[in-house]
Design a protein around this nucleic acid. Structure first.
Length: 306
RNA sequence: GCCGAGAUAGCUCAGUGGUAGAGCGCGGCCCUGAAAAGGCCGGCGUGGGGGGUCCGAUUCCCUCUCUCGGCA
């Protein structure tokens, strides 16, 4: 029996994934599942550069704007949501096309996630208190005792990972390094294709800078102003553009400075995304040449599918 | 035209008679429940051109070019 196909179209922010994805989906009876940690939020259409209405009309998109910005979201929830949509698409006979730039999110779909209970807020709060009182060295030493394997992998300054490892140990009773070995991926059951888009760095950075300018002309300032009237979840608060503009509203820096910071932070994000993708040897790279249209690129990818 | 200040990393600048640093920018990397987050590593340089003093000059001297102030 032929394995069912799952396609991933990934790439750094602003390379042009969305437009290409719509063309590709149209050719192969696919529906798009967003693979993005910020586009799940609603009321943040401009900052997160959500695909516009026209694109969403042509092809069905999933997991866009489905969460209120005051709600937390995370990889585990994403995996659950995405897998259930995946199942529905299969039963309809359409192909899931994952589109986005979140490295961890796509890898969790393909490679699975280790089993763990939900976040334990009180334990975590206690650990963060210890962090501020006694410093990261204290927590790191603690981790070294209960889970030396993880301690070796995690840098002593990486407080967030140290705390997560301790939290897992305290709730599950087993070191995270042991639990992490049990991941169930999709590789055997499905035919998985991963395409990553890229251009040369200069062109990419130009696109990023321009996209940020476009956000401003689309009304970014008002969007964020409205957003900040309500309490934001710590995850939604992480969207590039929110904190920078908050700083502008508070008089911390000028509008031009805020714009510059948004551009710079987006460039850095793109750089980190590329680092992540580069080490994934399963990826088929699709290099965008200067004047290619989204349709032409989609055709090139389509040819690689069969 | 004259007087003064300066010319060092992509940018803003520091410093030293024994071939140079800082911040920002930029590059590389790590990543399993905050991932657009978080963490680590890296100076990426013909020290404006030419000459002189000296064992040795980016540092001292002369000269040229350019930039910025001030006076005309």
């Amino acid at each position: 029996m032929l394995k069912k196909k799952i396609i991933f179209l990934i790439g750094p922010t602003a390379v042009g994934k969305s437009a290409i994805a719509v063309h590709l989906a149209g050719k192969i009876n696919a529906e798009i599942i967003s693979c993005d940690s910020m586009q799940v939020y609603n009321s943040m259409d401009i900052v997160t550069s959500q695909p516009g209405r026209a694109q969403r009309k042509k092809v069905k998109h999933h997991l866009l704007g489905v969460i209120k910005p005051d709600k937390e979201y995370n990889v585990a929830r994403y995996r659950k949501d995405a897998m259930s949509i995946c199942g529905k698409l299969f039963s309809k006979g359409s192909i899931p096309l994952f589109v986005g730039g979140a490295g961890l999110y796509y890898s969790v779909i393909i490679d699975g996630i280790f089993p763990s209970g939900p976040e334990n807020k009180s334990i975590r709060a206690r650990l963060y208190k210890q962090l501020s009182l006694k410093g990261n060295k204290y927590l790191y030493d603690k981790l070294s005792k209960v889970d030396p394997l993880s301690a070796e992998k995690i840098h002593p300054n990486d407080a967030r990972r140290i705390i997560r490892a301790l939290e897992v140990y305290m709730t599950a009773g087993l070191p995270i390094s042991v639990l992490q070995r049990s991941r169930v991926g999709l590789g055997n059951k499905y035919e998985i294709k991963i395409f990553a888009l890229n251009t040369n760095r200069r062109a990419l950075y130009d696109k990023i800078n321009q996209r940020v300018n476009k956000m401003f002309s689309l009304g970014l300032i008002n969007e964020i102003k409205g957003l900040l009237k309500h309490k934001l979840s710590k995850t939604a608060l992480c969207a590039i553009g929110v904190r920078e503009l908050e700083g502008y509203f508070k008089g911390k820096y000028s509008l031009d400075e805020a714009r510059g910071l948004i551009q710079r932070n987006s460039r850095r994000y793109a750089k980190r995304q590329l680092t992540w993708f580069r080490k994934d040897k399963r990826i088929q790279w699709v290099n965008i040449k200067g004047k290619e249209t989204p349709l032409e690129i989609a055709k090139r990818i389509w040819k690689k599918l069969y």
